[in-house]
């Protein structure tokens, strides 16, 4: 059609005429992602050597705890868990936008020329694998249930019974933020009713449309929930580890721990 659509004018213009600080957003979001990636990797790797559970609390990076007897001491149970949230977030449409801008510079910001000479988007390996987001969405829904189970269990101290502590509240908030992030997932929003062309034909479809509307509310704030839930997972893990290793004391209603 038009191989020469981009005129010589563009090449002459240079990279951009934008005068605003367009580099701030990719820098901050890229830095934030890198910081979380570093923290979560360290947290999982040092798992066996720096306690991640205390009383009724278990770090969300190890929920549900899979620690069979045959597992070597040096192997962190977090590795059996982390692939699921990592895969879900890596293939998430919001995170894709973020790391394509920050790390791939594709593009670094709107109307700012990108450095790569060629571009094939998500049409080839490995980026065509982004289509597995639907698989991770199904897995993430299971993990949401497991995290809520963990949050509910954090109110029950074995041997003492029902109670509440700061850690219980932190774990509940963590499960809530992750649920909001998952409910806003574009793939879930599509799956629940977005794939329909007509919502009105049957009562079930009308019900699915209602669910779609609710998920759309979460979807419109997907970026906010993505960051809130990600940061809070880190903070929850950090809090439980600090309590478990005696650095700080948890305020709670139980007598032991």
């Amino acid at each position: 059609m038009v191989a020469d659509a981009m005129s010589a004018l563009q090449r002459r213009y240079g990279k951009t005429h934008r005068k605003d600080r367009w580099w701030v957003e990719p820098l901050l979001s890229g830095g934030g992602l890198a910081a979380f990636l570093l923290y979560s990797t360290v947290a999982v790797v040092v798992g066996p050597n720096w306690s991640y559970e205390v009383g009724p609390y278990l770090s969300p990076m190890f929920e549900p705890l899979i620690r069979p007897d045959w597992l070597p001491r040096w192997f962190s149970p977090g590795f059996l868990i982390l692939w699921a949230p990592a895969g879900f977030r890596t293939t998430c449409y919001y995170y894709r936008r973020t790391y394509y801008r920050s790390y791939f510079l594709s593009p670094p910001a709107c109307a700012v020329a990108e450095p790569a000479a060629t571009y094939s988007g998500e049409s080839k390996f490995p980026l065509i694998l982004q289509n597995v987001h639907r698989y991770f969405m199904y897995v993430a829904l299971v993990f949401n249930v497991l995290l809520w189970v963990g949050a509910v269990k954090s109110y029950w101290m074995p041997g003492e019974g029902l109670g509440i502590g700061v850690g219980s509240i932190v774990m509940t908030l963590n499960a809530f933020f992750l649920m909001m992030y998952s409910l806003g997932c574009h793939s879930l929003r599509h799956w629940v009713a977005g794939g329909l062309n007509s919502f009105s034909r049957t009562p079930i479809r009308r019900l699915r449309r209602k669910a779609w509307e609710i998920f759309t509310i979460a979807n419109e704030k997907h970026r906010m929930w993505a960051w809130t839930s990600m940061i809070f997972v880190g903070l929850t893990d950090l809090y439980i580890r600090l309590v478990a290793n005696g650095v700080i004391t948890d305020i709670h209603t139980w007598k032991s721990f």
Partner: peptide
Amino acid sequence: EYCNITKCCTEVCPEGIHITD
């Protein structure tokens, strides 16, 4: 498959259409 969802189209749309989402 060429779109990598960086949402610039949505950011600039003068009609506020949520093109990407």
